[in-house]
């Protein structure tokens, strides 16, 4: 499925990130404050907590043309709301496996814990997710569901 090298160059994947307000969003703020340069392909949507992040968001993002999705929040034991991330971890463990079973390439979806002090890690998550989506190419399979190809 991987694209040939010259196409990888030209393709700019679109990646949607659903992040919690307290850890990842703040970590991404820190990456900014620290002027850490990263790929410009990720668009962040801010939620209060990973507990609020609904698998429906991920499906909808793919439907709207995302080539990759990032879900990110506080490390275990770090949740601003004490346990939202633990519930999210269960929810997305199942969701991730179901999507895989239905044939979505696992590289399309990135889950990560990024704390408010991990600006550097956020950059890695962004660059990794971008590189993986770039390798896989446009998520045409999903877009084809709508009868539309990128």
């Amino acid at each position: 499925m991987a694209l040939p090298a010259e196409k990888i160059e030209a393709f700019e994947p679109r990646i949607t990130a659903f992040v919690c307000n307290w850890c990842t969003y703040t970590g991404a703020d820190l990456a900014g404050t620290s002027r850490l340069q990263m790929d410009p392909n990720v668009r962040i949507i801010r939620l209060p907590c990973t507990g609020r992040i609904d698998p429906l968001f991920v499906i909808k993002a793919f439907e709207r043309g995302a080539d990759g999705v990032i879900v990110s929040g506080c490390h275990p034991a770090d949740c601003h709301y004490t346990s939202g991330n633990y519930h999210a971890r269960r929810r997305f463990a199942v969701f991730n496996e179901i999507l895989g079973f239905l044939g979505v390439e696992p590289e399309r979806l990135t889950f990560s814990w990024v704390s408010a002090s991990e600006g550097q890690k956020w950059r890695e998550v962004v660059n990794d997710a971008t590189a993986r989506a770039r390798r896989l190419g446009p998520f045409d399979a999903f877009r084809a569901l709508a009868g539309r190809s990128a």
């Binding site: 429906l56 909808k60 929810r91 969701f95 179901i98 999507l99 709508a146 009868g147």
Partner: peptide, 23 residues
């Protein structure tokens, strides 16, 4: 969230969601 007409996109979203809700 889920298109309700029989259409590949809505069908996929429905069956993922149904499966998830049954976990």
């Amino acid at each position: 969230w889920l298109e309700s007409s029989p259409h590949p996109r809505g069908n996929f979203a429905w069956h993922v969601t149904r499966a998830l809700h049954q976990a």
